[in-house]
Structure formats: C-alpha cells, structure tokens
C-alpha cells in the first residue's frame, strides 16, 4: 500500500514538473514572438508577389544593401506597378488614395530586435546572407509571420559559423583572416552589435 501511495505521489510530482516545464516553454516561446503574424492594414501577400510572381525581394525593399534599416517600400513603389496592375481593385484603390493624399500606410511591425542592438542589413546583404535565413520562406507566406527567434544566441551562432569574407573586403581584413593562423568568422565582439 505504501508503495502504491508513493507511486501516486511520484506521478503527481512528475505531472506537476511536466506542467511547469511546459509552462516555462510556453512563456519562453510566447516571449520570443515566433509565429507572430498580425493583421496588416493592407492584406499584402508575399506569397503572391515573391512566390507566385517571383518578384525579387530587393525590387520592393530597394536600398536594403545600403541601409541600416530594411526599407519598407514606400507607396510610390507599390504604385509603380499598381497604377496599372489591378488598379480597379478596391484594395489597390485604397493604396492609390493614400498615395494621392500623401498619407503613409501604418504597417504593423512583425520583426523587432531586442533593445540596444544595432543591426545593419547592408552588412549581411553584402556577405551574401539570403533574406530567408532570418525571415524564413517569405515567398510562401500570405501574411507575413515571424519565422525565428531574434535573440542574441541566434546572432552569435550564425556569426560563429559563417566565414566573414565577402569578396571585396578580404583585402581589408587580410590580417584578420590569418589571425592566429586560422580562418576568422564574422565578428562576435560586443561592438559589432552594441555601442
């Protein structure tokens, strides 16, 4: 009898422990925002544009190779095509109206870095990192959704594994490339992202 009681107790303990672990995992996942996919003021579909129609990312997000921020395309980029394409659709007309009025669309931010981090897209574009590495299969998303966690560990892991030798820069970092006789990865020192 005492054994069965003990067993029950253990079962209870296991259950509670499991619940706690699940709870922590749930909270952690929620805090990381993975899967966050808010409704946008314009039901823009990346799947249609990037997936079906094969429009390259940088066609709309032009300047991402020069910016620190990835530019959300201004309305004049939308209107570049949509003053002709599907111009009579109500959604497009909304965009056109907003464009004419000079009122920007307030998109809901999906990707958000933690505080006090400086991140430059252009550095990564120059290094040949595909957009999908961080943003996931955008071309398959109707509504944009956060693909992976944006935490320091993810940055560090990638920086440690990626070699930091984009074509033109190897001259500059010649010294670094042979630092201590082995190849050097992307910088992981603090000032890379924090200043």
């Amino acid at each position: 009898m005492i054994f069965s009681r003990l067993k029950e107790r253990w079962r209870l303990v296991t259950l509670v422990a499991l619940l706690i672990v699940l709870g922590i995992w749930k909270v952690a996942m929620a805090a990381s925002n993975v899967g966050y996919s808010p409704a946008q003021p314009i039901p823009f579909s990346h799947k249609l544009h990037a997936g079906v129609n094969h429009i390259p990312c940088q066609y709309c997000h032009a300047g991402v190779d020069r910016d620190t921020e990835s530019p959300i395309p201004p309305l004049n980029v939308c209107m570049g095509c949509h003053s002709v394409v599907d111009a009579n659709k109500p959604v497009i007309q909304k965009i056109a109206a907003a464009y004419k009025a000079g009122k920007p669309i307030q998109w809901v931010r999906v990707y958000d870095l933690p505080q006090f981090v400086k991140f430059a897209h252009r550095w990564h574009i120059a290094a040949g990192v595909a957009c999908q590495t961080c943003h996931g299969p955008v071309q398959d998303m109707n509504q944009i959704r956060q693909y992976r966690e944006f935490v320091m560990g993810e940055c560090i892991a990638c920086h440690r594994s990626q070699t930091y030798l984009p074509a033109p820069a190897d001259k500059v970092h010649r010294n670094l490339a042979t630092y201590h006789g082995h190849e050097v990865n992307a910088k992981t020192e603090c000032s890379t992202c924090h200043n």
Binding site: P73, L75, A98, A101, G102, W107
Partner: peptide
C-alpha cells in the same frame, strides 16, 4: 508600426 514614406 512601421510607417514608410508615401513618396520617398
């Protein structure tokens, strides 16, 4: 919110 330019 991310607010791009209307006319950049």
């Amino acid at each position: 919110h991310l607010v791009p330019y209307a006319q950049q």
